[in-house]
Amino acid sequence: MKAMVLRSRRAPLVLEERPTPAPSPGEALVRVEACAVCRTDLHVVDGDLTDGPLPITAGHEIVGRIEVVGSGVDAFRVGDRVGVPWLGGVCGACAYCADGRENLCDDPTFTGYTRDGGFATHVVVNADFAFPLVGFDDPIAAAPLMCAGLIGWRSLRMAGNAKRVGLYGFGAAAHILAQVCHFQEREVYAFTRPGDQSAQDLALSLGARWAGASEDPCPCELDAAIIFAPVGALVPAALKAVRKGGRVVCGGIHMTDLPRFPYRLIWGERQVMSVANLTRQDATEFLAFVPKSGIRTVTTRYALDRANEALDDLRGGRVHGAAVLVP
């Protein structure tokens, strides 16, 4: 098998030939058809997230076919198409797991961070954290759903029944979530990097009521704002845009430090909250929702050995929609 491997932080991935691994009990070997490139992958490569072991194969928005099923796995057969997300396993014993909040597990594993991921031709996965993709006929289109789609779905749930939703950072997650909101008859207001007309045009084409730069005033009061860009300075900006009682949801795993801001921005029972990972229930609900809603992903395809180029394009804001590696 081939894999794009991170050997040291802040260094390019290295293409390696490796023996194809065999699954242990409870695992499955997946032949990767597509793996989307997430901003979290950038945080791993760029050293913003440092707790994971090295070397590691990045990538956690995986779509592929089961090639080998380990003992004790009854849910899948060889040839089944599955999706594999960021959350790769939980302890099942901590207070959070017992309380139905496995996304906050005290001893989790993460695909592409603490266990090898999908920037490869093959990957071994915990079968309990793989999801059947029956009816998802295009693996490239489906790959961004496995994190960008899922974290957007969970973020929207945290935003409550907001009618007017601001999306800060219009990348892979926001371009999917905008379609979810449109289907649910919510209004979307998209905030992009200053001067990023392509992202603004994409937002409008996907049903946004308004699109502008992150520094622009919103044309109306928002019920909630969801921040996908890893920029702490957007939190006070979003607080200014939401009404009393509104919520600002931070959807990323990493964000630059929040600046000081006056108490008046949060007064009026405004809330700031974060989203951490996902649960398997999130994935089950979202993947059932996608076919009904007609969501389409906008993707740019890269060969596996161009993973560094894809990461650099994402880092530089040159990807609109989602970048997807195709072995």
Rank of each mutant, 00 (worst) to 15 (best):
R9P: 07
R10V: 13
L13H: 05
V14E: 11
L15A: 15
L15P: 10
L15F: 06
T20D: 02
E27G: 09
V30Q: 09
R31E: 15
V32S: 03
C38H: 11
C38M: 07
L42N: 12
H43L: 09
V45S: 14
D46I: 00
D46K: 06
L49V: 07
D51I: 00
I56S: 02
I56G: 00
T57E: 08
I66Q: 02
V68G: 00
V68K: 14
A75L: 00
R81V: 08
V82M: 08
G83R: 06
W86A: 08
L87N: 05
G89L: 06
V90G: 08
V90C: 13
A93E: 15
A93T: 15
A95Y: 03
D99C: 00
G100Y: 07
N103F: 00
L104Y: 14
P108Q: 06
T109S: 14
T114Y: 02
R115D: 05
D116S: 04
G117D: 04
G117I: 01
G118S: 06
A120I: 01
H122P: 04
V123N: 05
A130C: 09
P132L: 11
V134H: 09
I140Y: 01
A143F: 03
L145P: 03
M146R: 04
C147S: 03
I151H: 11
I151C: 07
L156G: 07
R157N: 05
R164W: 03
V165E: 10
V165S: 10
L167V: 12
G169R: 14
G169V: 12
G171K: 10
H175L: 01
A178H: 01
Q179V: 04
C181H: 11
E185G: 00
E187P: 02
A190K: 10
A190N: 09
T192K: 07
G195V: 10
Q197H: 15
L204R: 14
S214Y: 14
E221Q: 12
E221M: 12
L222Y: 02
A224R: 12
A225H: 07
A229Q: 08
A233E: 13
V235P: 04
A237M: 15
R243N: 11
K244D: 12
G245V: 04
V248K: 10
V249K: 07
C250V: 14
H254Q: 15
M255E: 10
T256G: 10
D257R: 15
R260P: 13
F261D: 09
F261Y: 15
P262T: 08
P262L: 08
R264V: 15
L265G: 13
E269T: 09
E269Q: 14
M273N: 01
S274P: 01
V275I: 06
V275S: 15
A276S: 14
N277Y: 03
Q281M: 01
E285Y: 02
L287N: 05
I295V: 10
T299Y: 01
Y302W: 13
Y302T: 11
A303C: 01
L304K: 11
A310F: 01
R315S: 11
R315N: 08
V319G: 08
A323M: 06
A323S: 14
L325G: 03
P327M: 04
